[in-house]
């Protein structure tokens, strides 16, 4: 009797997690689409939407790992041997993204050529030439 109870609970869990993952994906897609359509310039709103998308991504990752991969049902000690090393990602992400940002800022500050060329639109002629050479192939 306990067995069939467990089975139907399991079945509902699979169905619920599938629905959650699908809904989160649709919300993410809508946000990703809106972000570039409504907020043409990078700024606070765009960063805020990107933040929301990343939070939704982490929620999806949690549901996949915890329910589909059943990590939530393992012993705590075993979970910790997987999760604790992944904590290195906190340093990994912050250090490297900050490094990339610093590189950009110092280059724009000290390299005048880079600072000027960063604002030059791609010339239309060059694009046409590319098109022509493509069709020539």
């Amino acid at each position: 009797m306990a067995h069939s109870d467990h089975d139907s609970a399991n079945k509902n869990e699979v169905r619920n997690v599938t629905i959650i993952l699908s809904v989160l994906t649709i919300v993410e897609l809508a946000l990703g689409f809106l972000m570039y359509k409504s907020f043409n310039d990078p700024g606070f709103m765009r960063s805020a939407i990107k933040g929301i998308i990343i939070i939704l991504m982490l929620a999806k990752a949690f549901y996949i790992v915890s329910y589909f991969m059943h990590l939530g049902h393992e012993l705590r000690n075993m979970i910790m041997t997987i999760v604790v090393p992944l904590g290195l990602f906190f340093w990994f992400i912050i250090a490297f993204l900050y490094d990339g940002h610093t590189y950009k800022v110092s280059r724009l500050t000290y390299d005048k050529y880079k600072a000027e060329s960063a604002n030059v639109k791609q010339p239309a002629i060059e694009k046409n030439e590319e098109k022509r050479s493509e069709t020539g192939h």
Binding site: F92, I93, F96, G100, K104
Partner: peptide, 20 residues
Amino acid sequence: AFLIAYGTIRFSSTGWPDPN
């Protein structure tokens, strides 16, 4: 490591194409 390398380069770039 791959994705963080991508992020680092993106943070060091002044622009990026629009996925849409």
